[in-house]
């Protein structure tokens, strides 16, 4: 509970240098397939991602912030990520976030996770541990993870479609109440996971995101790494 809101703003800032700018969260594949074409379809896409992969990520982050063993959470994240391409992406982003986090909020727990997973732990787990190092709580970590689940695709679609950036930001604003709800569910699950272990965490997934992530990873020409 230590830190106030300011540390959360630093952590959730889109300019936090942890590699997210090169990833679209599946939006590039959805744009190519014609499923995201405007602000309305971007909102549908983000809502779907928020309540599936977003909830799972938020719960993992909240659990890490609550002190659940990060290595057990890393295994749980693997189990919740059937796509090898997305597992690789999550670990790459986790490694990048570890670097930024250790510079921003030096912590023995982050050092230990970096030593145990030198190629990177799953990004939501690192995000949660980073929140913990910053003195933030599980609900804060869940908010940051849930927000990332939608802000990444929204930014990417602005670049991919030339979508009006004001419209894209309005999409995020409209999703805010749902985002709060997802974060609360994630934090509640994390509270259970402290006693019951990672199995208490939700395991929601979006099969289409998994399938298109595999396809996207094989594209020879693409703007985003995932």
């Amino acid at each position: 509970m230590g830190a106030g809101h300011a540390a959360l703003l630093v952590l959730a800032d889109g300019r936090f240098p942890a590699g997210g700018h090169a990833h679209s969260g599946g939006a590039e594949a959805a744009v190519k397939a014609g499923r995201v074409t405007d602000a309305a379809s971007l909102e549908d896409f983000c809502r779907g991602r928020l309540h599936t992969a977003g909830l799972s990520a938020a719960a993992l982050a909240a659990a890490a912030a609550a002190g659940v063993d990060p290595l057990a959470l890393d295994d749980a994240a693997d189990a919740r990520t059937p796509s090898p391409a997305l597992r690789a992406t999550a670990r790459r982003l986790g490694r990048q976030m570890t670097r930024a986090a250790r510079a921003a909020w030096p912590s023995p727990e982050l050092d230990a996770l970096a030593a145990a997973r030198p190629r990177g732990a799953h990004q939501p787990v690192v995000l949660g541990l980073t929140a913990r190092a910053a003195g933030l709580g599980p609900l804060d970590a869940a908010h940051a993870a849930a927000y990332e689940a939608v802000s990444g695709p929204a930014t990417a679609v602005v670049r991919l479609l030339g979508l009006d950036p004001f419209d894209a930001t309005a999409v995020l604003a409209r999703l805010a109440p749902e985002l709060d709800h997802v974060a609360e569910r994630a934090a509640e699950a994390a509270r259970r996971a402290v006693h019951e272990g990672p199995d208490a965490l939700p395991a929601c997934s979006a099969p289409l995101l998994d399938i298109t992530a595999e396809q996207h990873a094989a594209w020879p020409v693409r703007l985003f790494a995932s």
Binding site: R15, P17, H21, A22
Partner: peptide, 9 residues
Amino acid sequence: RDDISANLE
């Protein structure tokens, strides 16, 4: 420049 993490890796 702004987020050098992937290049550093």
